[in-house]
Design a protein around this nucleic acid. Structure first.
Lengths: 384, 384
DNA sequence: TCACTTACGAAGGAGCGCTTCATTAGTAGC
DNA sequence: GCTACTAATGAAGCGCTCCTTCGTAAGTGA
């Protein structure tokens, strides 16, 4: 429960340094005066702070802006390139990776296809290829990596061990965090992919700014991710969002309505059936429309449970089927309107397939921020 | 999003003062040396801090402890009696109030019976009587009150307005916070009663120490309160925990199994029927046992929804029926065991009827803490 | 070239916390 | 009752961080 440590003078400086970093991260290059004004410090004090931050490698000078009145002011910026973050999305069929700077600006992305039943070694190798691919694209080395954040399907325990994964058999009981730590000499974070997707939507997607968000992963498998009070909600055993396990919530079998619809042509591969049904419904096929109706009926039950329990500001529809949001959104809203006490906004995901990698990066950025702004870390470390 | 204000020297002092207060609140009377050690400050600095706090009225000296080696040390304690908090539970049939010091130590309690359909004025008068009764019992005046926290049935909006109340008709559309602010010249907080009960259990009840708690209010009406990350979770529109509104969760009609059980004697008043059924089940009546089975079946569905969605550390069974926890707990556990991914602890409430008032006080204490520990409040105010 | 604007840099001062050391007020043992 | 020991007290002096103030520097616009 919070810290009971009193502050030293150096603690004050540390606080002010962090405040300066935060201001620079938020507002880009700033002059000394602007920085001083924003943080409330005097210019001379801020000068000392920036000098120190420059010496440590956290901040650098950029050329002054031209055409201003008066003597041109020095400008400083946060050196977001003094370290890099990688986000990884380990899906059934694809492994995606993205590399960003410390501000979460994405600099490179890669994708490695992989078979759901590929042996473990192959899958891990694909992860390594995806990450090193990103490094090569952005001309950085593994030594510059500060954090790798991984989103994966399945239930992950608090230590980063996979304890359940319906979609990827070889994934089960794997100490994923451990394996990745062997591969990469940096901090490794593991999260459930739906939760990271929720994070992405809450940070830079359609739910930007919302503190409480329910993210629905609708696709061939169903899942949910929760953002509560602006943070990823994991739950005590990292098993939150698993409403799909409750038969009464009617999520588990919901996709069957779309898969087994009579309007799907014979011989369609099973993974494409739902897409056919949704497309047919969009084109006015009454049989498909009925299947979609029944699908949304089921989807709405589990969703209403989450909305009634949490009263979020927004519900975001994501996952594979969210490409058909135009067919799903309105009927879902209508049903929720009837079922809920207070109707949340219901919107479609805007980030698409990159949702999870982007969320992984946002998660890593948050983690970095937390580390920086946790008191009693001692002085700021040298950056690079 | 956090503050961007840098720190002054005085800010450091403020921080240290607050740290000292916090240490004293947590550990009772402490000597200067002990305080210094705990907070990491040097003794001379801590002396200045305590001098200042004494001058402001936040801290006072107590006689030194005897029989120690060496020169006896001054001891200081937090003046929890420099202000008072009141918690109020507005139920259908009773209005309870309790008065505590700033540490949340309860000093007086009162109860005022009131009819569910009493006119609004009468109900408000009963609230006033309950509170002034507490003041009289503890020989304090309304001027010493810092905060009143109120828990009430029904859905309260973010501004403290009652927007829905099935049990108390006159309560509807009432600006409760406004009315109370007219009555009492202090800070007024309004919350839903189940959420406050959850708070109490998480702070000093059976769930003490748990960060994520689901509190089940089981009684003639059903409700739930959530503690997430140690804080009351209200939701965006203060409508969280309303799973009872979802038919598929089977909470709404669940109590009917107990009310309409054939083993209830003719002529039993409807409010006592469920109690009879539970008692009969405890005594081995097979008909009553069946009714209880069906009741728990329903109860478990909504509960499983909450557990699967949130993955709490603990589920607390509270409310009127929790007096029969011995009959309910085991069957509930069995059903959850089957339904949940990770089984939480399931325990009965230990605080009984005082749950809500106590929770209201804990809520007020938390609020006070937040206010104190929010930066940029300027210097510590004079206490009393 | 001159007035004006804005930033820079150095100097002096105040607040806060730290260390050090002589002093004080108790207990324990003889 | 005296002495040795223990632990807290109080005052002095130091260093760090931030503040304000003021003269100087480096641009723009007339």
């Amino acid at each position: 429960m919070a810290d009971l440590r009193g502050g030293d003078l150096s603690r004050l400086r540390q606080l002010n340094s962090l405040t300066a970093i935060r201001a620079l991260r938020r507002a880009g290059p700033l002059t000394l005066s602007a920085l001083a004004e924003r943080t409330g410090l005097s210019r001379p004090s801020m000068k000392e702070v920036t000098d120190e931050l420059m010496a440590l490698g956290w901040v650098e000078e950029v050329p002054p802006s031209q055409g201003t009145m008066g003597r041109p002011a020095r400008r400083y910026r946060f050196r977001a390139d003094s370290g890099y973050l990688v986000g990884v999305d380990i899906g059934g069929h694809n492994i995606r990776a993205a590399l960003s700077d410390l501000d979460g600006e994405i600099l490179a992305e890669t994708r490695q296809p992989v078979l759901p039943d590929a042996p473990l070694g192959e899958r891990l190798a694909a992860i390594e290829r995806a990450v090193t691919g990103c490094l090569a694209l952005s001309r950085t080395t593994v030594a510059d990596l500060w954090t790798i954040a991984v989103g994966t399907i399945g239930v992950i325990d608090v230590e980063g061990r996979v304890i359940y994964s319906a979609a990827v058999p070889t994934w089960r009981d794997l100490d994923l965090a451990g394996k990745l730590r062997e591969m990469f000499p940096c901090q490794v974070l593991i999260e459930n992919d739906s939760r990271l997707a929720a994070m992405a939507e809450a940070r830079r997607g359609v739910a930007k700014g919302a503190r409480d968000v329910v993210f629905l992963h609708v696709g061939r498998r169903m899942g949910a991710g929760l953002i509560i009070d602006g943070k990823v909600h994991r739950g005590f055993g990292a098993a939150s969002g698993e409403i799909v396990m409750l038969p009464e919530a009617r999520w588990f079998d919901a996709p069957e309505h779309l898969n087994t619809c009579a309007s799907v042509p014979e011989g369609t591969p099973p993974e494409d059936a739902a897409g056919h049904t949704l497309a047919a419904a969009r084109n006015g096929d009454p049989v498909a429309a009925g299947a979609v109706e029944r699908y949304v009926d089921d989807l709405a039950v589990g969703t209403a449970a989450m909305v009634l329990i949490l009263d979020p500001q927004m519900v975001v529809l994501g996952g594979g089927f969210s490409r058909s949001a135009d067919v799903l959104l309105e009927p879902l809203r209508r049903r929720l309107e009837r079922a809920c006490m207070r109707m949340p906004e219901v919107r479609a995901s805007t980030l698409g397939d990159e949702c999870v990698v982007v969320g992984a990066i946002d998660y890593a950025v948050d983690h970095l921020d937390d580390q920086l702004f946790t008191p009693d870390r001692g002085p700021l470390p040298v950056s690079r």
